[in-house]
Amino acid sequence: MSEMRLHDPAGNRLYLNAEERAAFLAAARRQPARDRTLCEALHWTGCRPSELLEITPARVDLSGGTIAVRSLKKRKDASGSAKIVFRSVPVPPEFLDTLNTAHGVRESQASRKKSALPIWPLSRVRVWQIVKRVMIEARLPDAPHRSPKGLRHGFGVHATVQGVPLHMLQRWLGHAQLSTTAIYADAVGKEEQYIAARMWG
């Protein structure tokens, strides 16, 4: 298994910084409803595109303020059998309002059939294309971090900068090992320098 990194071998950043995340979110909010909610869901949950495509209305807790995401990385229980792991990720109430309005989440939850259908019935390639287009519109530089994975890593770095405990972030991101999540703590120093430089300027 390859080790997760926040910089490529040439030292290029593989995550969106705070300014880029804000620009992406602003650009997403100018999109049609489907693309806007898709981008916002990735922004607010840090989930992988393949995990996003499995989200159904039944997994959206409008009153609890969370979205249940199925971890698609293979896990095994004590007997060695594959197990299904869900994680509940808290999201802002405003996003849930937007999601409900755009996709009729509450109405779909009243129907067993509708509540089991994906909110975004798209392919992974289509999700990648939408995210990439929005990132270009947000004027993010043409660099390795301009990707859905850069958005996920940006979520992890942002959460760490904001003081979210690593064990909680581990759960939100669906990492099997805390050591994987700990890479985000390594990036905090660089982000703090960036924030400090803006303060000094």
Rank of each mutant, 00 (worst) to 15 (best):
C47T: 03
A22L: 15
Q31E: 06
R30Q: 04
L14F: 09
A33P: 07
Q31P: 08
A33D: 05
E20T: 15
A22P: 15
P49V: 03
R36N: 10
L42A: 09
Y15Q: 06
A41M: 10
A27L: 10
A22H: 13
T37F: 06
P32I: 00
R48D: 07
P32N: 04
A41L: 11
W44K: 04
W44A: 03
A28N: 05
L42Y: 14
A23W: 13
E40P: 08
A27G: 09
T37W: 05
Y15K: 01
S50P: 09
A28K: 01
T37L: 02
R13E: 00
H7Q: 10
L42D: 14
E40M: 09
A18W: 12
L25C: 15
N17K: 12
G46P: 08
R13V: 02
A27S: 09
E20I: 12
F24L: 15
P49H: 03
A28R: 01
P9T: 00
W44I: 07
P9R: 00
Y15L: 01
L25V: 15
L16I: 06
H43K: 12
N17F: 13
E19K: 15
A27W: 13
P9D: 00
S50G: 11
N17P: 14
G46R: 10
C39P: 10
A26E: 11
L38D: 11
A27N: 09
L25S: 15
A28E: 05
G46W: 08
R30L: 04
R21C: 12
E3S: 03
P9K: 00
W44L: 06
R34Q: 08
L42E: 12
A22M: 13
P9I: 00
S2P: 15
W44D: 06
L6G: 06
R13L: 00
W44M: 04
R5M: 00
H7V: 07
D35F: 06
L16H: 12
E3Y: 07
R21T: 13
L16K: 09
L16N: 06
Y15E: 12
E40H: 08
R29P: 08
H43L: 09
E20W: 11
A26D: 14
A41K: 02
S50H: 05
A23M: 07
H43I: 11
A10Y: 06
L25Q: 15
P32Q: 00
S2Y: 07
A26F: 08
A22V: 13
L25R: 15
M4Y: 14
T37D: 07
R5L: 00
R5G: 00
S2V: 08
L6E: 07
R30I: 05
L14I: 02
D8V: 01
E20A: 07
A41H: 09
R5E: 00
C47N: 01
R36T: 03
P49R: 04
C47F: 04
P9W: 00
A10H: 11
D35E: 09
A18G: 12
H43V: 15
L14K: 05
A33T: 04
R13K: 03
S50K: 03
Y15W: 07
A27E: 10
C39M: 09
A26W: 10
P49Q: 07
A26Q: 14
R21I: 14
R36S: 02
T45Y: 02
A23F: 15
E40D: 04
L38N: 05
G11F: 14
R34W: 10
G11M: 10
L38Q: 07
D8E: 09
